[in-house]
């Protein structure tokens, strides 16, 4: 049953509806987090500073040996293979939601990075890759002389 309360002394204004709508939208997108629903896997978060980039991605269940990180010019690729799920006749499956199989994702970086100065760590199912801009690609400061 629809109930409407009219309370002229408590006027919320036209923005109340907008806020409600925003909340509803946020709730919809909160649920859309399963990696299987995404076309690009794995999703990454990227941070940048003047001369460095940090990329993180969640790869629960992998070990550092399962991940490859080739870098070419401005593109970092994250490749890996999840271990095959348990199999056998004696196993009865109830639910299988976790990701398996192989994946490959290439991320274009905001600038070229030095392939010798890449620091990659893997802990608690999260891969963190730190990259540095090579010396010759750093923006140069031009000295202006007074005439």
């Amino acid at each position: 049953m629809l109930q409407t309360t009219h309370s002229p002394m408590n006027f919320a204004g036209p923005f109340a509806d907008m806020r409600r709508m925003q909340n509803a939208m946020n709730q919809i997108f909160d649920g859309a987090r399963l990696p299987t629903q995404s076309w690009t896997y794995p999703p990454v978060n990227l941070w940048a500073a003047e001369d460095g980039i940090v990329i993180t991605t969640e790869l629960a269940g992998l070990t550092e040996q399962d991940i490859e990180l080739p870098v070419e010019d401005k593109v970092l690729t994250i490749r890996g293979t999840y271990p095959a799920p348990q199999s056998g006749d004696e196993i009865v499956w109830h639910r299988h939601e976790r990701v398996d199989g192989a994946f490959s994702r290439s991320v274009e970086l905001p600038f070229r990075v030095n392939p010798d100065l890449i620091n990659a760590r893997f802990g608690n199912g999260v891969l963190t890759v730190e990259m540095q801009r090579p010396e010759d690609a750093k923006p140069k400061r031009v000295q202006i002389k007074s005439s």
């Binding site: 399963l34 990696p35 969640e58 790869l59 629960a60 269940g61 799920p85 348990q86 056998g88 004696e90 196993i91 009865v92 499956w93 109830h94 639910r95 299988h96 939601e97 976790r98 990701v99 608690n124 199912g125 999260v126």
Partner: peptide
């Protein structure tokens, strides 16, 4: 996300909790 399976009278739950 979870995997749930049963083997030899034991139910196994695997839950992904990265970070």
């Amino acid at each position: 996300t979870v995997d749930i399976f049963e083997r030899d009278g034991t139910t196994v739950i695997l839950a992904d909790m990265p970070s």
